[in-house]
């Protein structure tokens, strides 16, 4: 009789398919996680359709779509990672999913491959939808150099990793499956307001800017602005530059801390 367990990676890849199937069959997840940033892009672009910012030396005028595109992409990263995983895993902790899995021979690593895989696939599709809508519906400007797109790719995926890990961490907060939405959504909304997604970051008071700089969202937004805004706009940023090295460091610290935290605290079920 075969006794060798299926490979951790193989099961992990099967989990991605399983997680994606469950995700697309959960209407509130699809609406509040997948379509929400796209909807906000449409609303903001339409609401401020008269906006035109002339940037001396940039050779182009910024419209509302240009202004909100990086913000809505950053929101997508936050919503697909932190919000989606925070709510999803809080529910799975309390509805018996983790308990059921813990009774099977699955490795927690396979489980997390499934979770991250689901986030990466859905967030990538979401970003593509946001970028294409901004470009072809609202005529937003898209970067033309490979270098900028590579910057976008690393900020996006590193940011998504940090955002997902933050989601795993906050999934510990809700005390029941029912309260998951109510507990997870408000801090995420606040994080969006203080991280320069709805409001321009530099208009916030300095203490709030400092506080927001502790979290990865501010840095993800800054990285995206470096990609989609004309380079002349860096003078508006805090310190007058994009500081991509700081973006990389801040997000990497979040990833590292999150991985250690998750390894130390994750249990299928609390044994009592």
């Amino acid at each position: 009789m075969k006794t060798e367990l299926p490979s951790i990676l193989g099961v992990g890849i099967k989990r991605i398919g399983y997680e994606l199937k469950s995700y697309i069959r959960t209407p509130d997840a699809v609406f509040f996680n997948f379509f929400f940033p796209l909807m906000m892009l449409v609303i903001f672009t339409a609401a401020f359709s008269n906006l035109e910012i002339d940037v001396p030396g940039a050779g182009r005028v910024l419209t509302s779509a240009d202004v909100y595109l990086p913000a809505m992409l950053a929101m997508g990263v936050l919503v697909s990672g932190t919000q989606n995983l925070g709510i999803d895993m809080a529910i799975e902790k309390h509805d018996g999913t983790l308990r059921r899995l813990s009774g099977s021979p699955i490795s927690p690593v396979s489980y997390f491959i499934g979770k991250f895989g689901q986030v990466f696939v859905s967030a990538t599709l979401q970003a593509v939808a946001i970028v294409l809508t901004a470009r072809f519906v609202f005529g937003a400007y898209l970067p033309e150099t490979m270098e900028l797109w590579l910057t976008f790719a690393w900020v996006f995926y590193l940011g998504l990793l940090a955002s997902s890990i933050l989601g795993i961490a906050i999934s510990a907060l809700p005390r029941s499956a029912k309260s998951a939405n109510a507990v997870i959504l408000p801090p995420i909304l606040i994080l969006q307001f203080i991280s320069g997604i709805y409001l321009s970051f530099t208009t916030l008071p300095e203490w709030l800017q400092n506080f927001a700089s502790v979290f990865p969202v501010k840095w993800i937004g800054q990285g995206f602005r470096a990609v989609f805004y004309p380079d002349q706009f860096k003078s508006v940023e805090l310190g007058g530059d994009w500081f991509l090295d700081q973006v990389a460091i801040a997000i990497t610290i979040w990833v590292a801390l999150g991985v250690v935290f998750t390894l130390l605290t994750f249990r299928w079920v609390k044994k009592s």
Binding site: K2, L5, V11, K14, Y18, K21, T26, E92, D95, R99
Partner: peptide, 23 residues
């Protein structure tokens, strides 16, 4: 039963769990 299953079909769910075992 704790309400953790539901979105996928009976067959999809059981097929997935089968893939977790050696035999």
């Amino acid at each position: 039963s704790a309400g953790d299953l539901g979105r996928l079909s009976v067959r999809d769910t059981i097929t997935h769990f089968a893939s977790l075992y050696p035999n």
